[in-house]
């Protein structure tokens, strides 16, 4: 538990906040008893589990995070309408393709978030990542322009993530 020499009561503050929120949502209440129990769990569980954590780059720029989350949510709605119309249309019109996207960001957590975002948004599913984590293979449902797609993913999703994680 005390892997680092300095003992801290809140080794993972973001996780503690998340645990408390999920506990309150799960019980659907703001009663003082649940607040106390939730806070107890939110403090104890990170203390017990912080030793198992892989070191990951930390978050910076909270406003960029909020803007990113809302942008992705908006894109999910747009993506759903696009995909719905593509599915309802004839199969002949589809233009599926595999595309390899060069990655600039490093480390596991940012790449995972980027791959998940790509899977959730317009007509793309991330299929595989190369061994050296430099290329992301993506399957596209309806490809119009390959270079434009790569440029769009890089400017719209990768750049904000690089700002957030500062890597």
């Amino acid at each position: 538990m005390r892997a680092n020499p300095r003992f801290r009561w809140l080794p993972m503050p973001l996780h503690s906040l998340l645990l408390l929120t999920v506990w309150l949502l799960l019980n659907n209440t703001m009663a003082p008893g649940h607040l106390v129990l939730g806070s107890f769990l939110a403090i104890t569980i990170p203390l017990l589990t912080s030793g198992m954590q892989n070191p990951q780059p930390s978050f910076h720029k909270p406003f960029t995070i909020i803007r990113y989350v809302f942008m992705v949510l908006g894109d999910i709605v747009v993506a759903n309408f696009e995909v719905a119309f593509l599915i309802l249309g004839p199969n002949k019109k589809l233009n599926p393709a595999f595309v390899a996207i060069p990655l600039e960001i490093e480390f596991e957590l940012p790449i995972t978030i980027l791959a998940s975002t790509v899977s959730l948004t317009p007509g793309t599913v991330s299929a595989e990542i190369s061994e050296d984590k430099k290329w992301l293979y993506v399957h596209v449902l309806n490809l119009t322009d390959k270079d434009e797609l790569i440029a769009q993913i890089k400017s719209r999703y990768e750049r904000p993530l690089m700002e957030i994680f500062q890597c």
Binding site: I87, N91, L94, G123, V125, H139, L141
Partner: peptide, 19 residues
């Protein structure tokens, strides 16, 4: 059910079902 191969079929459920 409708789309031609597995990779295109993957797009249907993962997107349309989340929304």
């Amino acid at each position: 059910v409708k789309l031609p191969d597995f990779y295109t079929r993957l797009h249907g459920p993962t997107k349309a079902t989340t929304l």
